[in-house]
Structure formats: C-alpha cells, structure tokens
C-alpha cells in the first residue's frame, strides 16, 4: 500500500472507514483525531446529494479539497475508505511579502 506519509508537504494524514471509525493509519497533526473524523464524515454524507440538475446520473464526488490560505485538506473516497491528507501550502502572498525582507 502506498504510504500517505510519503506525500510531499503533508503534515497529517488519516484513513477512515465509511462509518467513521478511525483506522490504524493516522499520523502527524491528524493522529487519532476523532473530532476531525466526525466532521469529515458529516461532510461526506452531505455531499452525497448535492444538485441533481448540475450533477445528474448520481455521479458521486470522489475528491473533496478544503483550501485555507496556508494549508489544505484533501479527502479522497476510494475502496470504501476515506483517505485524508493535510498539506502545507506555499502561498503566493507570503512569498511576495517576504521578498522585501530579503533585500533589507
């Protein structure tokens, strides 16, 4: 099995079953985070039926991402499991702010 730990810039990972049980695969900032797991299960349940007009044929979503300015969560549904990775993001705004500091 491909290790979630090897993903570049990951700072936490978690694998859940569809009923919300945390599997033994968890680490980093998300290690055994049950509060987080419960929120994600609620979110995945909500996304099951979003808009029948725009998303016909019951095509379920298999990838969800939640993007904050400096980090993001990527949620993938595969093989009846929910894989979650928290990644650090290099934001463009912080890069431009840092630029003058280097010159000084």
């Amino acid at each position: 099995m491909l290790s979630l730990e090897r993903i570049p810039d990951q700072i936490g990972h978690l694998v859940l079953t569809e009923d919300g049980a945390v599997l033994t695969v968890s680490g980093g900032e998300l290690e055994n985070d049950e509060r987080f797991a419960n929120i994600i299960i609620g979110l995945v349940t909500l996304t099951n039926k979003i808009d029948p007009k725009a998303f016909p044929n019951n095509e379920a979503f298999d990838k969800i991402s939640i993007t904050y300015p400096d980090h993001c969560y990527i949620i993938c549904l595969s093989n009846k499991k929910i894989h979650i990775v928290k990644k650090r993001l290099l934001s463009l705004t912080s890069a431009t702010v840092e630029q003058p500091l280097i010159d000084v």
Partner: peptide, 11 residues
C-alpha cells in the same frame, strides 16, 4: 474554499 470533484464536474 471547498472543492468537490468527480470525473467530469467540479463544485
């Protein structure tokens, strides 16, 4: 920003 995605559509 929350992004939901399948093979052909994105929300």
């Amino acid at each position: 920003v929350i992004s939901l995605q399948n093979d052909s559509r994105k929300c």
